[in-house]
Amino acid sequence: MFKPSIHLLNKEIRENNFKGALSIMTFFLFLPALIIMFWLFIKGLPVLSLDFLLQDPIRGMTAGGIFPTIVGTFWLVIISVLVSCPLGVLAALYLSEYAADGRTTRIIRLAILNLAGVPSIVHALFGLGAFVLFLRMGTSILAASFTLAVMNLPVIITSTLESLKAVPHSFREASWNVGASKLQTIRHIVLPNSFPGILTGLVFAVGRSAGETAAILFTGVAFYLPFLPQSVFDQCMSLSMHLFTISTQVVGVPEAYPYATALVLILLILSINSISVLLRSYFRTRRKW
């Protein structure tokens, strides 16, 4: 029989200690998130009701509900995705189907990386300079959505690129061999097969922009508006901004209100993200290759 020497045993103990320490550290990483969720639920749930969701804020935002902020968030998110989705998909198509691996491609990749890394407040400055002032959109839903779209573009490009790359090259070759042009191949082979991945990335981007605050701060979101936006040239309120306002700027807000607002915001984002995760796993099981 083989008996491990003391040296080996020590090694094993050290290894187990190491693994244990790592798993505890990993656990501690997620602990705060769980505690935060739990705590938001406990503090916010008593106020959360249909009335809270469907009423206007009243008495200087110290009472009432958050309806206009939800409407505003929807406007912003939907318009921004409408703008960034086509652009992002085109950019990803170019990178995956057309661009040769050369200097230009490297610069484009670097630009995408930097676009993703630019601080959100710098995006806000850009939105203010470019959309609000230069293109004369004024502080409006349109300007804020465009700013969000610029922020989301790298996210959408990256996720789309990934799903385009996941379509096997043999699919394209088969299509070219039966005489289809490059564009026909893209339209009938590449895009349909990568559609689920693109959709997943899109939903993820929606979740991200729903919570963004800094980028829309000066471009189209108001602290308080007594009416709902009538067109894209109006300002609007947003959930994220509302949370910022009632937790730092307004005095006399009942304690549970910001909790409930935070809870609504986080539930909205988590459910959007869950859709993205579910879509991904659903399509993964149905994938044909």
Binding site: F30, R208, E212, T213, S240, L243, L265, I266, I269, V277
Partner: peptide, 14 residues
Amino acid sequence: EFLAAIPSVVWGFV
């Protein structure tokens, strides 16, 4: 992914 999805304004609130 969920941790990354928590928006910064909620972190500020926390």
